[in-house]
């Protein structure tokens, strides 16, 4: 099967005047973790809903697992799992009851359902919460339950909309371990996030902003594109240096990070270190090239491109 898990061309979704998703192209291969990185309101949730067949696209074509969406959406329901951004299991039902309900709706036999539940409850560490109502659980516990519920029927493709927003860093690592376990078994995962560290773990990612797809590729490739454009400056009076740097037309952004000032230059500057030395000289600064981070990629992709 060479067909990608998700294929979208010129996918758009408008809400009246608002253009939530604007002509997005996607090719998401099977068996990978694909990330959507984007600020609030950038269209992550809307895109995921359109891919699941929950929202009819205003324009564009979508194929998921080889089926036309939304026309053939019913045919892929059993093969996809969806963990919504807002908790969508029943708060007045217990962990077990929620899972049993979804299992039977998904068409699992009683026995298969019980086995899957036992496996997942162990795997997601929900053993002590079996009889706890979902409404009485912490945010992180709920998200573990939601992930367990989304993968109960062993779907080929799982959509996770900001699955770790309420999870502490430690548990987030565990959570991602689970995702890699899933991928190892052949599952394709599309995950949206605000966190750079999570985005960096993805096999591939897309950066969304204002409904537009600003950049996509593997994290390494995205960062490599910025090679030679990121500079770190050490010295005194960094607040003033920052103001001076931002005044330069070649500088795209500057942000203080602890004792350093991190400066991102526009594309096409031959020797940024020499340029900055020359323009900011006389201040006794220590200037050197730095390894681009995903945050630099994000900043470069999402800052509005101005006239220059």
């Amino acid at each position: 099967m060479t067909e990608p898990a998700i294929h979208a061309r010129q996918l758009s979704r408008h809400f009246g005047e608002v253009i939530a998703v604007d002509r997005i192209d996607l090719d998401i291969p099977r068996g990978e973790i694909y990330g959507f990185l984007g600020p609030n309101g950038s269209g992550k949730t809307t895109t995921i809903r359109a891919l699941c067949g929950l929202l009819t696209p205003t324009a564009g074509e979508v194929r998921v697992l080889g089926r036309e969406i939304p026309a053939q959406a019913e045919e892929v329901r059993r093969r996809i799992g969806y963990m919504t951004q807002k908790f969508s299991l029943y708060e007045d039902l217990t962990v077990e009851e929620n899972m049993r309900f979804l299992g039977s709706i998904q068409g699992l036999s009683r026995r298969a359902c019980r086995q899957r539940m036992d496996t997942l409850i162990k795997e997601y560490d929900l053993g002590e919460l079996r009889r706890r109502r979902a409404g009485m659980m912490s945010g992180g516990q709920r998200q573990r339950l939601a992930l367990a519920a989304a993968t109960l029927h062993e779907p080929e493709l799982v959509f996770l909309d900001e699955p770790t927003s309420a999870v502490d860093p430690e548990n987030r690592r565990d959570f991602w371990e689970k995702l890699f376990d899933l991928v190892e078994r052949g599952t394709t995962i599309l995950v949206s996030t605000h966190y750079m560290d999570e985005a960096e773990r993805c096999h591939r990612l897309a950066i969304l902003e204002h409904g537009r797809l600003r950049a996509d590729g593997t994290p390494a490739a995205l960062m490599a594109q910025l090679d030679g454009r990121v500079v770190e400056i050490d010295g005194d009076d960094l607040r003033q240096v920052k103001a001076a740097a931002l005044a330069l037309p070649e500088v795209r952004s500057a942000a203080q990070q602890g004792l350093h000032l991190r400066v991102l230059l526009r594309a096409g500057v031959d020797d940024p270190v020499a340029l900055l030395r020359q323009r900011l000289d006389g201040r006794g600064l220590d200037i050197c090239l730095a390894r681009p981070s995903l945050e630099d990629v994000f900043v470069d992709a999402t800052r509005p491109e101005d006239a220059a």
Binding site: C52, I80, T84, I105, Q106, A149
Partner: peptide
């Protein structure tokens, strides 16, 4: 309550 979003992704 948001349950519908999950329910309608099931068969």
């Amino acid at each position: 309550r948001g349950n519908m979003e999950l329910l309608i992704t099931t068969p």
